[in-house]
Write a protein that binds this DNA or RNA. Structure first.
Length: 551
RNA sequence: GCCCUCGUAGCUCAGUCGGAUCGAGCGACCGCCUCCUAAGCGGUAGGCCAUGGGUUCAAUUCCCGUCGAGGGCACCA
């Protein structure tokens, strides 16, 4: 009996009661069955009686009194009690709850996955930086969170593509090329050029690879520097992201979009939809038809495409590749883009909500309370690879994911590398390692728990009950994280689960002591440990964080 | 001026698609290892959930105002 199954059974009880009483009222689509904060309130609680009070024109307690006995009859339910203003607190019998442990072990890595988003094709675009320098803190949050969102959506059954849109066209690229060329010649960085030692590193690398590049005539030489630097810098970004365990399914090049006439094609397409017009020599998209504050220029009076035109074309391209939902992760400094991106969808004949924009607040780094601003390589910004070098991938990813993205974040480098309770990554990983150790010890003792039978009813200790209940929540947590695009929920859940496990471990001996004989209770607890290990493992997997067997 | 996000314990933050006493870690204080990882566990102290209204049986959660913090409002990229 899992929470979903129980919810369905409760719903059936409510439906039959409504029918019998001839009330003819609506039952809320989402019948709430939650884990009460207090253990005294049972394993699950429902507020259905409170919800129905008004439409049924009956006191909540009266409704609860008719429903509770019927709920108590549901197989697997031990008791159903009325409490407070009309809550029904449900207690499962221990065999039913205990069975969860075996179910989880048997489901293995599939435990937690679902089908809520089955059949949906979702495009998740994030980072999308200029290839003109190392990825910095502003990109780092999205590298971790975007990847985790994609994993969580996939776990909910969606078909997901993660995409990085390379802004490899426009004046920034030229400034970048000019900066690298100047460095190669030992000249000063041009006005508005790129600073930082990485520019000199790029120049040096190019000079080694192409010793005669400086002999080229200036226009060709400039192009050669720009292109060589672009290739190297993009590769560097890709390597850093790979090391960060953020893998993109698709690297979209803005330049390639133009070269394949994707922009003209999109413009033509939108013109047919009737939201394109000309004014003052420029070509506009009438985004104000769909909630934007002002119309946006696609082609400037001088004939140049705007950046917005590329964005629009890229959206059309995504739709032509058959994605029915496009999620964009942007920094808070881009929130002005939300309405126009949604309007682009609408101009394309889609629903506004086929575009979803998640806005992330900025990240600050401190070290022992002092803000860290300087980067050795990139001048005045801290880069992703520097962060990883200092704290490691697991700590960096986890720390970035465990907070909702709409709150500003300050990471203290000293704290996220601590190996204590202060640092949630280690707390969760430690729980995993601790369980792995118990399972190893069981093996060393020759206990083949998988083949010794499992008596679910033996898991009746309060701490076992608490742990089983927490484990059973995992699929709902994953589903919720996917629905709300909030992977931090998974992290928070894991912290809670780890705490519950540690409490269980503290009061329930798993392996036989000394010369004690192996009892069925030990076997049942090993199943419970294995289920917990699997759940923590699956959860960390969703965050892209490793689950070590030893620490 | 208009728009977005935020305001919860001394600190860093959860919780908020309305529900029963708002939680965790740190910091302070007191306890728990002769056998499975003490990187752990238990307990005490600490809150008019920024503020004033409204909706509701029920508001930290939803709506409006105020105050405070951060960020936006290009024929830039």
């Amino acid at each position: 009996m899992n929470p979903e199954g129980l919810a369905a059974s409760v719903r059936a009880v409510v439906e039959s009661w409504v029918a019998e009483a001839g009330l003819g009222i609506e039952i809320p689509a989402e019948l709430k069955l939650e884990r009460p904060k207090s253990r005294d309130h049972g394993d699950y609680a429902t507020n259905i009686a409170l919800m129905l009070a008004k439409p049924a024109r009956l006191a909540p307690v009266v409704i609860a009194a008719s429903l509770a006995p019927k709920i108590a009859q549901i197989p697997g339910v031990g008791a159903a009690e009325i409490a407070g203003p009309g809550f029904i607190n449900i207690r499962l019998d221990s065999a039913t709850l205990g069975q969860t442990a075996q179910n989880i072990v048997e489901a293995g890595s599939a435990f937690g996955t679902g089908s809520a988003l089955a059949g949906r094709r979702i495009n998740v675009e994030f980072i999308s930086a200029n290839p003109t320098g190392p990825l910095h803190l502003g990109h780092t949050r999205w590298a971790a969170v975007g990847d985790a969102i994609a994993r969580v959506l996939a776990a909910a059954g969606a078909q997901v593509s993660t995409e990085f849109y390379i802004n490899d066209r426009g004046v920034q690229m030229d400034k970048f090329g000019a900066s690298v060329m100047a460095a190669a010649h030992g000249e000063k960085t041009p006005e508005d050029g790129y600073q930082g030692s990485y520019i000199h590193d790029l120049a040096a690398a190019i000079l080694i690879a192409r010793p005669r590049i400086k002999e080229l005539p200036i226009p060709e030489q400039f192009t050669a520097f720009r292109e060589a630097a672009y290739a190297l810098q993009l590769k560097q970004q890709q390597q850093v992201l790979e090391q960060f365990r953020t893998n993109f399914d698709y690297w979209a090049s803005e330049r390639a979009l133009h070269e394949s006439n994707g922009v003209e094609h999109a413009l033509e397409h939108l013109r047919e939809k009737g939201h394109v017009y000309e004014l003052d020599g420029a070509i506009w998209l009438r985004t104000t038809d769909f909630g934007d504050d002002k119309d946006r220029v696609l082609v400037k009076a001088d004939g140049e495409y705007t950046y917005f035109a590329s964005d629009t074309a890229y959206y059309v391209n995504k739709r032509e590749r058959d994605f029915d939902l496009c999620i964009y992760l942007l920094g808070a400094d881009h929130h002005g883009y939300v309405n126009r991106l949604r309007a682009v969808a609408a101009c394309n004949g889609d629903e506004l909500d086929q575009v979803e924009v998640l806005i992330g607040q900025l990240v600050k780094i401190t070290r022992g309370g002092e803000e860290v601003k300087l980067s050795k390589r990139a001048g005045n910004i801290v880069t992703l690879d520097e962060l990883v070098d200092e704290v490691g991938v697991d700590a960096a990813r986890y720390s970035l994911i465990r907070y909702p993205v709409d709150s500003p974040l300050t990471l203290d480098l000293e704290i996220i590398t601590l190996r204590t309770n202060d640092n949630p990554v280690f707390y969760v990983q430690y729980a995993h390692a601790r369980i792995a150790s118990v399972l190893r010890n069981a093996k060393d003792l020759g206990i083949d728990w998988r083949n010794l039978g499992f008596d679910a009813a033996l898991l009746s200790h309060a701490r076992e009950n608490e742990l089983l209940g927490a484990l059973a929540e995992f699929p709902r947590v994953v589903a919720g994280a996917a629905e709300l695009r909030e992977p931090h929920r998974v992290a928070r859940y894991l912290e809670e689960l780890a705490a519950v496990y540690h409490r269980f471990y503290d009061s329930c001996r798993v392996l036989p002591r000394g010369d004690e004989d192996l009892a069925p209770e030990h076997v049942a607890r090993l199943w419970l440990c294995a289920a917990t290990r699997q759940t923590i493992f699956n959860g960390l997997q969703l965050l892209g964080v490793s689950a070590p067997d030893r620490m």
